[in-house]
Design a protein around this nucleic acid. Structure first.
Length: 824
RNA sequence: GCCGAGGUGGCGGAACUGGCAGACGCGCAUGACUCAGGAUCAUGUGGGCAUUUGCCCGUGCGGGUUCAAAUCCCGCCCUCGGCACCA
């Protein structure tokens, strides 16, 4: 019989659908397992890179089903976003139509791959029944004071015509389109993620099932640092300059203060005679590209404001400058300058000729303020530092902070680099922010029972970049929910990362129109046992989701406060050395591969390419190789099937000949290996090679044994177990073969095979015999041989004797079942 | 600069807790079948020397520990990813 993958795959996909095998019962007495893949943005069609994500998830889901879990394995679409709107502007298609068409394409693509999703739970973030609850989420944050509006410096992408969150800016450019980002001063909506900075940071330690690199990236991004806030009174006016420092031990080395150019304090502090000079500097600096200006290594510039501050620790007058390297958004927007012990302050002091004063000495090699060519930033011995003189700077840190607090000079504190999450977007295709502005009542949230604030569909798209909502009178004009007076709606929509920050909860109750999710169900299913997706979301999506989970936890909806217990980040698939993209024309389409080789071959190849967490290069020759394997396997079944139909049951398996024993042993060692490959770190590439090895051994057995002497019960046992094991990887093939073996039901409904430890034991082992660590011979010893026997056999080897040259070995090391090392 | 991951044949990659480096696949070579082969099957395939048995070298580089190191330790080099004037 020929292997016709189209027929087989179509047939089984239909059976699965008709039987509804992947529909997940909401409750069952089996243990739950929630396997989740990151849902895609539906921008056209998916390529094999996405397929990798879904296949990994499917192997896990199907395997866990066979292990007896009640598995939740859903799929959906992150369907709001700019590309839909751009398509509307360019081609005149409504974003909803464009998006829906893409969703259909993708759904069809995925069904052809045979992924075991529960399609009844499919969700799409642009559906009213979904975004209603995104708006609900906004209201919950608003009630808690975690959603707020403020004026501030924001990143603006001139091409996307919208503001961006800090996380969405990479190297000073828009993460999406690469256009350099401009800084604007605008009023925008934020989520107060900074309130959760510490928990987001500290709880990373709880995430033992997450890869370290992702946790590290989040730690870097949150940027926690301990230090002190210290207050420096300003001379001559009633003003205090508060600064944050991680090095309170260098307070005695302060020789200047510096303010960020954006700081409103500049205006208060500057002396009249310095005003023109300072204002000129500030406006010049603010005109510069902010990302270049604040990049490391940029030239440090600044001007004196004419004003002095008093250093509380020693009463000294220190000049206050405005400097281009001070970040307004971090700390207090002002710093104390300690040139001797800080790289940036050192550069600044050098370029302006300011005093450099050493207060922390390098142990054993004192520093000289006059001649030093670089700052000393390590811990050391404190010098000229009042009562702390002579102390070790790092050890004294805690005491210094207590002392500052006692004296009222400052206090210990922790600062974070993390900024609040800017969530408003001046775009159409997103969930409207449920806020109304009333002249009398001010900013009023839309009451929960009036959700959703519907996104109007009858809008006109113009390439002006302005959101069509801005001009949609019916949408804009409303009445105040409090007083009933005419009011205006907020026309901004939410960042799509808000949509995706909670979707994993919705899958549990995707069609509940009373609430976003039922806490009882969600707490039963979540946290997600295994989350799978690309590293590109290491910060953005994963941190936002953690934040929202913690908020909902604090609001009493969730019993857990981390959404994803285990995270797996899969590598990308490259083609011709580059990321696949339509514009580069290097997209490998799954349909084409399925048509040519079949879904099972595609799945196996994607897994076989290399370790799934690593990037891999697509190879046409590679998939050919896997295709050959599948055909070979098919042919072996063809050879066997008729003979096997005589033996319906595997029955007691008694391997007699050495070939039979080898085959039996191989089967069990492969059950062990493949199970461990799946459980112990997603080593699917080696699992697939295990199938190949087992097939090779089987094929060798069939070739080397006369057909009349085939051990049929053994063969049946081998092929049945092999079919079950390959089921999560190549499910159509598995079900077809299972069926041809005369078995009932589907492979995914069977139990995962167990290995028999006894089958792994050999009666005799081949040992390598080394002389001084080099293999010189091999001997076969019985499993029960004593050490002395093994030594005797090793020493009696002719080849070993040749190397011994009559000498007596100093030592003989035996590694059971592996080797003997004769040491001279 | 800091943090993280990694460097193994012609290629993708294997190698448990230190125990025979190169599983499995690709590619290549030779042979078989064939009118033919870009199908299939068999055999071989880290490098060098000897080519009969063997011998030497070999996991980025240089040291070290050990009977034994891809694996552990010290010092470098390179690649990829993240952060990057965060006080």
């Amino acid at each position: 019989m020929e292997y016709i993958h189209e027929e087989i795959e179509k047939k089984w996909q239909k059976v699965w659908e008709e039987k509804g095998v992947f529909k997940t019962p909401q409750w069952s007495n089996r243990a739950t397992y929630y396997a989740l893949v990151m849902f895609p943005y539906p921008s056209g069609s998916i390529h094999v890179g996405h397929v990798k994500n879904y296949v990994i998830g499917d192997v896990v889901a199907r395997y866990k089903r066979m292990k007896g879990f009640n598995v939740l394995h859903p799929f959906g679409y992150d369907a709001f976003g700019l590309p839909a709107e751009n398509a509307a502007i360019e081609h005149g298609i409504h974003p909803r139509v464009w998006t829906q068409k893409n969703i259909e394409t993708i759904r069809n693509q995925i069904k052809k791959i045979g992924i075991s999703y529960d399609w009844d739970r499919e969700i799409s973030t642009c559906d009213e029944e979904y975004y209603k609850w995104t708006q609900w989420l906004f209201l919950k944050l608003y009630e808690r004071g975690l959603a707020y509006k403020k004026k501030g410096l924001v990143n603006w992408c001139p091409s996307c015509q919208t503001v961006l969150a800090n996380e969405q800016v990479k190297d000073g450019a828009c993460e999406r389109c690469g256009t350099p980002v401009k800084v604007k001063f605008l009023e925008q909506w934020y989520f107060r993620i900074t309130e959760y900075a510490d928990r987001l940071y500290e709880d990373l330690d709880k995430l033992t099932g997450w890869p370290d690199h992702v946790k590290t990236m989040q730690r870097n991004w949150i940027g926690k640092s301990r230090g002190a806030l210290v207050r420096f009174p300003v001379e001559g006016i009633d003003e205090v300059l508060e600064i944050f420092t991680t090095r309170p031990d260098t307070l005695w080395g302060v020789t200047f203060m510096a303010l960020a150019p954006e700081s409103p304090l500049v205006d208060t502090i500057v002396l009249p005679e310095k005003r023109i000079e300072v204002e000129t500097f500030v406006s010049k600096t603010l005109l510069e590209d902010r990302f270049k200006r604040t990049a490391e290594g940029a030239k440090k510039e600044g001007v004196f404001t004419g004003r002095y501050a008093i250093n509380p620790v020693n009463g000294e007058r220190v000049p206050i400058y405005v400097a281009n390297y001070i970040l307004y958004e971090y700390g207090t927007g002002a710093i104390m300058g300690v040139p001797a012990h800080d790289q940036r302050d050192f550069e600044f002091a050098k370029s302006l000729g300011l005093e450099i004063r050493v207060v922390v000495d390098r142990p054993g090699a004192p520093l000289d303020s006059k001649t030093m060519e670089e700052p000393y930033t390590e811990p050391g011995i404190m010098r000229d530092s009042g009562i702390f003189t002579g102390r070790e700077s790092d050890k004294a840190m805690g005491e210094i902070i207590s002392w500052l607090e006692e004296k009222g000079y400052g206090k210990g504190t922790t600062q974070y680099k993390l900024r609040d999450w800017l969530i408003s977007r001046q775009r159409y295709w997103g969930a409207p922010i449920p806020i109304v502005y009333c002249e009398k009542c001010g900013t009023v949230p839309v009451p929960e029972d009036r959700l959703p604030v519907k996104l109007p569909e009858d809008v006109e798209f113009e390439p002006t970049g302005q959101s069509p909502l801005k001009k949609h009178e019916d949408f804009l004009n409303t009445t105040c929910p409090i007083c009933g007076a005419p009011a205006v709606r907020e026309s901004d929509t939410m960042d799509t990362f808000v949509d995706s920050s909670w979707y994993y909860l919705r899958y549990v109750n995707p069609h509940n129109d009373e609430k976003p999710f039922d806490p009882r169900d969600v707490n039963y299913w979540l946290p997600v046992d295994q989350y799978i997706g690309g590293v590109e979301h290491a910060i953005l999506h994963l941190m936002y989701s953690r934040f929202i989970t913690k908020v909902l936890h604090d609001l009493g909806y969730l019993t857990f406060d981390e959404p994803f217990t285990n995270l797996f980040t899969q590598g990308m698939i490259y083609k011709d050395g580059a990321k696949m993209s339509k514009s580069k024309g290097n997209v490998v389409s799954p349909e084409e591969m399925i048509k040519k080789y079949g879904a099972d071959t595609l799945r196996l190849y994607i897994l076989f390419m290399g370790p799934p967490e690593k990037d891999a290069e697509w190879s046409d020759a590679g998939i050919e190789g896997v295709s050959r394997f599948v055909k070979r396997l098919w042919k072996i079944f063809d050879r066997l099937i008729e003979r096997l139909s005589a033996t319906k049951e595997a029955g007691p398996v008694e391997p007699k000949t050495s070939q039979e024993k080898e085959l039996h042993r191989k089967l069990h060692s492969m059950i062990k290996k493949i199970t461990e490959d799946i459980e112990g770190g997603f080593h699917f590439n080696t699992a697939v090679s295990g199938f190949m090895e087992l097939t090779n051994t089987l094929s060798k057995y069939l070739d080397s044994t006369n057909e009349t002497e085939w051990n049929l019960p053994l063969l049946r046992d081998v092929v049945e177990k092999m079919v079950l094991m390959i089921s999560p990887f190549a499910p159509h093939l598995a079900d077809e073969l299972w069926n041809r073996l005369g078995k009932k039901g589907l492979t995914v409904e069977q139990s995962w095979p167990e290995y028999d430890q006894r089958a792994l034991e050999l009666e005799e082992y081949e040992l390598a015999v080394q002389v001084n660590g080099k293999v010189r011979d091999r001997i076969v010893v019985s499993a029960t041989a004593s050490e002395d026997e093994i030594k005797r056999m090793a020493l009696s080897s002719k080849r070993v004797q040749k190397w011994l040259e009559g000498r007596k070995p100093r030592q003989i090391v035996i590694v059971p079942k592996r080797l003997v090392n004769v040491v001279l």
